[in-house]
Design a binder for these strands. Structure first.
Length: 577
RNA sequence: CGGGGCGUAGCGCAGCGGAUAGCGCGCUUGGUUCGGGACCAAGAGGCCGGUGGUUCAAAUCCACUCGCCCCGACCA
């Protein structure tokens, strides 16, 4: 490095030659905070709906997240794979997911008209590998992982990086000989994930969850509190934490006087709201009757008027195939339009929500147009096959364990760990010979983390008015140097000195030597969220000190040049703690 | 898929009772500045998303279409 002003030394990370296309104004398509900030800071750029390119700054953040994930996966014995994204139809047909995934799956054909999927996940693929290469229980357990792109043709991509169609995911798969082994692999992953999210300095809840299309086994989710998330975490002080999809709350039964059944005229009153209003009773006095169909069988569900049905719970109990009956089907099955349906006299299987056990003096549809009935006594009048937990937890509900008031918080799903059992190994023939010489299917688990969501979530959780404040471990650069006046030779020389010092000491450093006003540079550095900022300007020059600012610690240091590195090392320690 | 909104310069927007397309920021050049999005001067930059129609004349009116964003998508 000769002339500090005119030298072009490519080993110096200069802002002027970095691609950090910041935006002064908010792009109008971005409403969600993280979306706005990531766009404005030059981390990401959209290519199509739900498809983003990661620019250098974004990729650097993702790289740092991956590094942590790799370290923690390796620590529990994980082995990293690189798997193909394109996969043939056949393996998906074998597990039934060619159907189950439906429109969510990207499909394509090759020139010979053979069908393929752009893999939305990789259970089938790793299981197929396991089927071919694993023979004996002696080779188990195994933990395989990958950090790669997954493809899902989402109903509606939204919120910037929140729900996208091509996304980066760390997925791992465990293979064990039995359930105990799976339990072990599962808790290893739980611990690894806790370490990962802790190291990312992200706030999260570990909650009970539902497997959805992945499988019906036990599963837990890592939800980060976030206003732009699509989930809700149900939280109790006692430690009960669950995704709203599966959360339960204490029943709060209402007692009404038992009375004989009488028909009442309720002209054009269909909804709970209307009926309760018309009859001048609380909504809790009504019983909603819902007709569902599962593989051609009719199922009747009863739930109290003020409650809502939780369909996720239905699917868990009755399988993915259950669906609500259409308006026409209801008319055909019950003989009356929805709105006047009631359980009385229905010859179908009837299930009722737990809260309705023993309910008396209730009001429900009369199965006759414009009529409801009063005085319904569930035990006396209806043959309920089983009382089940069917309702969705709502505001004001109390903990099923301890009775305290539950909190319901919007949250974003960052990670999900599942026990799959033999759902995939069975159909794909992934078996091993056990110690008794018997062939048995491998017991599997699967564990995902969305890297883009970690970035988005962290961006939101740490952001102030000016931009994100990445934790040191994940920031695109650890140190940035701003030269206030680039036409001032001493400032430039000092800056270059300082840059070299930082670089030699191993700090990921970027030097902003653009001939711009100071405000522009400060704003851009705010958007880049670099934790340690060194400012070389007239103030510091006069005092012969290096000005170091750390927003995260709310601290400003004025260091002698010879003390700079030890000072930075100190800060780094503090920021990493 | 239903509903709503939006496509005009790189970004944010105006123009939409038809005629020559405009503003701010950014960009280029020169100069002055330099501790929180500076100032002066001179410039460059547009198939007004696409197609078709109405008209002497269309960014503007009509039809279709494509793209993007938001809300919803069974809760009786």
């Amino acid at each position: 490095m000769t002339d500090p002003i005119f030298s072009v030394n490519i080993t110096v990370m200069r802002w002027s030659h970095s691609l950090i296309p910041t935006l002064r104004e908010n792009p109008k398509e971005a409403e969600v905070l993280s979306h706005r900030l990531l766009l404005r800071g030059g981390y990401i750029r959209p290519l199509a709906s739900g498809i983003y390119n990661l620019l250098p700054l974004g990729w650097r953040v993702i790289t740092r997240i991956s590094r942590i994930i790799r370290e923690e996966m390796d620590r529990i014995g994980g082995q990293e794979f690189y798997l193909s994204a394109l996969s043939p139809k056949e393996i998906w047909v074998k597990t039934g997911r060619w159907e189950d995934y439906g429109e969510l799956m990207f499909r394509l054909k090759d020139r010979k008209d053979r069908e393929y999927a752009l893999s939305p996940t990789h259970e089938e693929i790793v299981t197929q590998i396991a089927a071919k290469v694993i023979r004996s229980y002696r080779q188990l357990p195994q933990i395989w992982y990958q950090i790669q792109r997954k493809y899902r043709d989402e109903l509606r991509p939204r919120g910037g990086m929140v729900r996208i169609r091509e996304f980066l995911m760390k997925d791992s798969y465990s293979f064990d000989i039995d359930e105990e082994g799976l339990d072990r692999s599962f808790s290893l992953h739980r611990e690894a994930y806790q370490r990962i999210f802790d190291r990312c300095k992200i706030n999260y809840y570990l909650v009970e969850a539902s497997g959805g299309v992945m499988g019906e086994g036990e599963s837990e989710e890592f939800l980060a509190p976030s206003s732009s998330g699509e989930d809700f975490a149900v939280i109790c002080n006692c430690g009960y934490q669950a995704n709203l999809e599966v959360a339960q709350s204490a029943s709060e039964p209402k007692e009404y006087h038992d009375e004989p059944v009488v028909k009442v005229h309720t002209p054009e009153k269909r909804t709970v709201e209307e009926v309760a209003g018309f009859l001048g009773v609380e909504k809790t006095r009504l019983v909603k009757t819902m007709i569902y169909i599962r593989n051609g069988r009719t199922i009747v569900l009863l739930i109290r008027g003020d409650r809502e049905l939780n369909e996720e719970k239905l699917r868990r109990r009755f399988g993915l195939a259950i669906r609500p009956a259409s308006g026409d089907e209801i008319k055909k099955l019950v003989g009356v339009e929805a709105g006047f349906v009631g359980p009385l006299g229905l010859e179908y299987e009837i299930y009722a929500d737990l809260e309705l056990r023993g309910a008396r003096g209730m009001i429900t549809g009369a199965n006759e147009r414009n009529y409801h009935i009063r005085g319904l006594n569930l035990e006396r009048d209806v043959r309920v096959k089983e009382y089940l937990d069917l309702r969705r937890v709502g505001p004001g509900d109390h903990c099923i364990r301890c009775g305290q008031l539950l909190r319901i918080e919007p949250a974003m799903e960052l990670g999900h760990i599942f026990k799959l059992g033999i759902k995939y190994s069975g159909p794909l023939g992934a078996t091993v010979i056990d110690s008794n010489g018997k062939e048995r299917p491998i017991v599997m688990g699967s564990y995902g983390i969305g890297l883009g969501r970690i970035m988005a979530c962290l961006c939101e959780q740490t952001a102030d008015d000016d931009g994100p404040n990445w934790p040191l471990q994940l920031a695109p650069y650890e140190v940035s140097i701003i030269t206030i006046n680039t036409n001032d030779r001493p400032q430039m020389e000092t800056s270059e000195d300082v840059y070299n010092l930082c670089q030699k000491a191993g700090f990921a450093t970027i030097w902003d030597e653009r001939d711009e006003g100071p405000g522009v540079k400060f704003k851009d550095h705010d958007l880049a969220g670099i934790p340690i900022r060194i400012i070389i300007g007239p103030e510091g020059m006069k005092k012969e000190r290096i000005d170091v600012k750390v927003k995260l610690l709310n601290r400003r240091l004025l260091l002698r040049k010879e003390d700079l590195i030890s000072g930075l090392v100190e800060l780094k320690k503090e920021l990493s703690g």
